[in-house]
Nucleic acid binder design. Structure first.
Lengths: 243, 243
DNA sequence: TTTTAAAAGTGTTTTTTATACACTATAAAA
DNA sequence: TTTTATAGTGTATAAAAAACACTTTTAAAA
């Protein structure tokens, strides 16, 4: 056995001497997936199929595995329970009340994301258990999940004002009306059409296309797309997105 | 044995059936304690006295115990390593890279706070290991602690602009100059004296005292104190603090 | 007592940003 | 050709942010 291996074992022994008296806990990950479609802002919930609280509505959740980090766990859990893929989630907060899960000491790190429901519906398998709920009528959830949801909404609203979160989840081409409706849904307030357009245009991160969406009015509405390259450039120059 | 007890045992068995295959992990809490004194903004670091990385500089950290939540753990750990008491810390982020601690799989939830160094120096025992470091010259830290520190600085700057974090950590009575210097230290930028005073006064949450601080200039500078009661009232009315 | 020095204190102008507000244009369908 | 439903557009006012420099005070020194 080479000397370096011996050194290594020795080091681990010292380590264990210090760490092994510490408590270990279950680390859960719960996902708040907001979705947007014509009807407004929704949240994806599942009917829990195991105890405790079996049969009640819950956020999409699971447990961290030793060989993955939290971001990876969130992606895996979301995919496993819904089929959703390529969803970028952002860490929200760690919830740690001692008795938050009556079954066992569990700390939960919440993640959230906002997606275009139509664009992801083909990935959504397992629709038996996972369902979109209108935010305004979302049901009582298990444990502290309603608190998680409330915090996620607050964060989403703040985030929508400072990051182009809204642009990225519309179809690639969208009308100004769609964009405004999205922001009104997220911020839960009416916005003035003219002021909204002025502000969005002043950001300089939209490309107006020659194409029109003729499906919703006789006149038709011009389509726009998000100018990601230009947005990234501006960010590098210290540009401060703000709606 | 009453029936309800039997029910309870049965329920726990079902639970274990589901939870007991999950991995458990160590959950660390690391504290980024910012301090302010005449020399500027500092951060409290400790020389680690156990393996791995014994002798290197580190944030103040420890492990969550089963019977406490994360906020409580942060307070206990900070008190144990420094003697500091009554420090309100805010949760920052959960760091979870798989190999972030080479000794064992550990997820760390970071907390941060900003305190008045002078006001707390009497509580600071164990100064052998814990030391204030000027933010600009803070050393290389163990694990991912430098990333934690960087994230905490960004959060502190955002927070200083939207919460009166700055007012609360000065001595009870302070001069406008002190307040401005504090904000300049946190935001790491020079502010215009007249504009700063105008803005602070417009918030209407300072009380000007008749007293002057004569220690730093011949003319003397009026002392102010933070009007917490009025601030709380304004917050209830939807007042939006912003500097 | 006068002068000096060091920091405190004070307003105005300009620019930018936010808000309020209502009519015209277009094109398909009737 | 008229109707209808939605798209599209501009200006005036108010509020907030930013730029900018001189006067006041008082203790200490001359």
């Amino acid at each position: 056995m080479p000397l370096s291996s011996i050194t290594c074992i020795f080091k681990i022994n010292i380590v264990l001497h210090h760490y092994n008296t510490e408590d270990k806990v279950l680390l859960a990950v719960d996902c708040i997936i907001f979705g947007f479609d014509k009807e407004g802002l929704k949240v994806l919930l599942v009917k829990r199929d195991f105890e405790p609280e079996k049969g009640k509505w819950s956020l999409i959740g699971g447990f961290l595995k030793k060989e993955e980090n939290l971001d990876q766990a969130a992606i895996r859990i979301l995919h496993h329970l819904t089929g959703l893929n390529n969803i970028y989630m952002e860490q929200l907060y760690a919830f740690s009340k001692v008795d938050r899960d009556p079954a066992e000491r569990t700390i939960s790190v919440a993640y959230y994301a906002l997606i275009d429901i139509a664009a992801h519906s083909k990935d959504m398998v397992r629709l038996d258990s996972a369902q979109w709920w209108n935010l305004k009528i979302a049901p009582k959830l298990i444990f502290d999940h309603n608190r998680m949801l409330a915090r996620a909404i607050a964060r989403l609203q703040r985030r929508a004002r400072t990051k182009p979160i809204g642009f990225e989840l519309l179809p690639e081409k969208f009308t100004m009306k769609q964009l405004q409706t999205l922001y009104e849904a997220i911020l839960d307030e009416k916005l003035d059409k003219r002021n909204f357009i002025t502000k969005v245009n002043s950001l300089g991160i939209l490309i107006k296309l020659d194409e029109k969406d003729m499906t919703v009015s006789r006149k038709g509405a011009y389509l726009f797309k998000f100018d990601k390259a230009n947005y990234d450039l501006k960010i590098e120059d210290g540009f401060n997105f703000k709606i």
